[in-house]
Design a binder for these strands. Structure first.
Length: 307
DNA sequence: ACTATTTCCTGGATGC
DNA sequence: TGCATCCAGGAAATAG
């Protein structure tokens, strides 16, 4: 289940392999769940756009795009697009209307936003590679490769945004300062575990890293946010930074089927101290790790080490 | 304004 | 062995 470290790893891998590439055509599957924008909007924004950057925002992968073909000296501000067969063809552009006002030299900016959900994967491969089951999108690149979105469970989402840019909620856990971090949770009655998972507050933390950071901070997942002491906040802030940074350094956690952009597994699952260890001895005190359900999520903790 | 619960999905694991 | 059931969980929707 890709969370911040996994998405960061994937985004870095993709940045290395597809930055500068041009999306020539787009095929989108028939299933509607994966699409947050309409198929027409997505195809029309992506086609003939150059990928200038790939980065992570929370759990989202953002592809920054320069719209319009580099070689099309457009005389009327409208790029020629006579795509054909198979691809969802471009019709009227809505996404970048504001930026496309005049046929100036500067290319219009747009973004392709991918959320991997639980089981989403982005693979870069040769066109000959067999199309995996549950493939929902195929982008043909000018480098003669394809960028494919595969997602069996269909919790992933694809969308586009125009020149206004993608507005992610919450703050980045690795960028926020300690005071602001504590301020996010002030006065909340909700269990700290739920608060850490709330993407409107903090973006990018999922079930694994919430549990692991709470263990390192010595705080039980059910503790109400408002009851957490100053010292515990300090420890939680540091633990979260530590856990996320270590996980990124190890390429994320491969539980279930996560692999990075090159199809390789991460190694942070070997460092998990509580997640997925129900009944196993705590690595600090040997008390069996407990699992409870909070907000519908499995939550793992040591009843002795965490207060 | 918050908080809690339900819903969406499929593959793999488990149970009988 | 086969079939049914359960479980995983991010985030949007719904309910309180």
């Amino acid at each position: 289940m890709p969370e911040l470290p996994e998405v960061e790893t994937i985004a870095r891998g993709l940045a290395r392999s597809v930055t500068g590439d041009v999306i020539e055509s787009v095929w989108l599957g028939k299933k509607k769940e994966p699409l947050k924008s309409t198929a027409t909007e997505i195809a029309s924004v992506l086609e003939q756009s150059r990928i200038t950057e790939v980065r992570r925002m929370g759990k989202h992968i953002v592809f920054d795009l320069d719209r319009g073909t580099p070689m099309a000296h457009s005389s009327n501000g409208r790029t020629s697009k006579t795509r054909g067969k198979g691809s969802v063809s471009s019709v009227a552009l809505r996404a970048d209307r504001s930026a496309a006002g005049g046929s100036t030299a500067a290319p219009a900016k747009a973004q392709w936003i991918v959320h991997l959900g639980m089981t989403g994967r982005l693979q870069v491969c040769d066109p000959e590679t067999a199309i995996a089951k549950h493939t929902h999108a195929i982008l043909t690149l000018s480098s003669k490769r394809e960028l494919r979105f595969v997602d069996p469970r269909r919790f992933g989402r694809l969308s586009v945004s125009g020149s206004a840019g993608f507005a992610a909620t919450g703050v980045e856990p690795l960028e926020v300062d300690p005071d602001r971090f504590v301020e996010l949770f002030r006065g909340r009655k909700t269990p700290i575990k739920s608060a850490l998972l709330n993407q409107r507050l903090l973006r990018g933390v999922g079930n694994i890293y919430a549990d692991e950071s709470l263990f390192r901070a010595g705080i039980r997942p059910r503790r109400r946010a408002q009851s957490i002491t100053h010292e515990q906040w300090r420890r939680l802030y540091l633990s979260l930074q530590e856990v996320l940074n270590e996980a990124i350094a190890l390429g994320g956690s491969s539980v279930s089927d996560y692999v990075n952009a090159d199809g390789e597994e991460g190694f942070f699952q070997l460092q998990h101290r509580v997640y997925g260890r129900e009944g196993e001895p705590c690595l600090v005190c040997e008390t069996p790790i407990r699992r409870v359900v909070i907000a519908g999520r499995s939550s793992h903790y040591c009843p002795k080490c965490q207060k």
